[in-house]
Design a protein around this nucleic acid. Structure first.
Lengths: 190, 190
DNA sequence: GCACTTTGGGACATCGATGTCCCACAAAGA
DNA sequence: TCTTTGTGGGACATCGATGTCCCAAAGTGC
């Protein structure tokens, strides 16, 4: 956040290129070597090491960047606006649009590589959690399960659709349709 | 299957011990070294190599064993009996009881290590697929999405509950309750 | 007790990934 | 143009995991 403008444009671009390549590549091949990441980012292996001296640092940066993207998505969805059902639809869509991020974070439990950041994930989706609780109070969402469970199911169903797309089993359009429908039906009150 | 009785009792026991330890250990630490697996199985590393000369062979055996356990569970659930809703509840429960197997198969995409066995997974849950289709035809399950999608959602929700237990966020009892309720509501027709 | 099987552990070679260092070259800015 | 900054690639050391081999010891069945 703070250092976004402290480095030269060149360094920022290279760093972003590495991060983007890492997210995309690790989403499908989590055990990819640093050499592969460098190649995907069209950067020398030396350069990669220059930006991220150790593998763990790259992984951490990927996680932090992913969480940042999620934070933006959640805040952009303005979950306080409209009915809970509408807001839920918005955040579902927003999550879906972040496919690579979800794949890299949960597909291979990359988040687990930085135990200290798991708490941050809770912060990231805190507004979603509040939305779910609000919806339960107002009678929109199922009160027979906890809001935390609804939140888990949301992540889970969105991820399932994204994964189905990734393996070519569904079109993105069909996936989004199914996700939306299932989330809606699975979470709503009677 | 065929060789179950072809080896000495001792060899069978050792093999099972290794397989069980591998499933349990890999469920939580998929990148565990063979030395760790051997230790968990209370077996020398040499012995491990004697049964599974290469890591890939151990992984394959784990996948095959997991699929076999799933096959038994599916057939035991007798999905043709009773209403689709009842049958769905039975298989949901059966999947849940196979927590370690689900964790090792899907938690770390171990199934992906043997592309040729992904097809086998389809065979394993073919009866479940048929159940979902039957339920759709008979008006029990949502017709607005494909049976394949319902199947994916089933796996996904069950896995979510299992994972929540594994990280200590829920008791097994609470997880099963939530899973059952969410699967029921997410898949049923209006 | 004896022969056969199974096991544990050490020694060793190998391999791929990682991380460090260095130097020449290209790009960008003053 | 000259200087600073950023880059690419090679050479190298290291490390952990893997896989092989061997032998002594423990276990098992007769």
């Amino acid at each position: 956040m703070s250092s976004t403008t402290r480095e030269s444009g060149s360094r920022n671009r290279t760093r972003r290129a590495i991060l983007d390549a890492a997210i995309t590549l690790l989403a499908t091949r989590p055990q990819a070597s640093l050499a592969e990441v460098a190649e995907a980012a069209e950067v020398g292996r030396s350069t990669l090491h220059r930006y991220f001296p150790e593998r763990t640092e790259l992984l951490s940066a990927v996680v932090e960047d992913s969480l940042a993207q999620l934070t933006v998505a959640v805040s952009t969805a303005e979950l306080h606006r409209g009915t809970p059902a509408e807001a839920l639809r918005r955040i579902t869509h927003a999550y879906f649009e972040l496919s690579p991020v979800l794949l890299v974070l949960f597909g291979e439990h990359l988040i687990d590589t930085r135990k200290d950041l798991i708490g941050d994930l809770d912060e990231v989706d805190a507004p979603v959690f509040e939305l779910l609780e609000r919806g339960q109070r107002e009678g929109y969402f199922d009160n027979g399960v906890s809001a935390e469970w609804l939140n888990r199911v949301l992540w889970s169903v969105v991820y399932t659709g994204i994964a189905a797309c990734a393996e070519g089993a569904m079109t993105r359009h069909a996936a989004l349709e199914s996700i939306t429908r299932t989330v809606e039906r699975g979470t709503r009150a009677d």
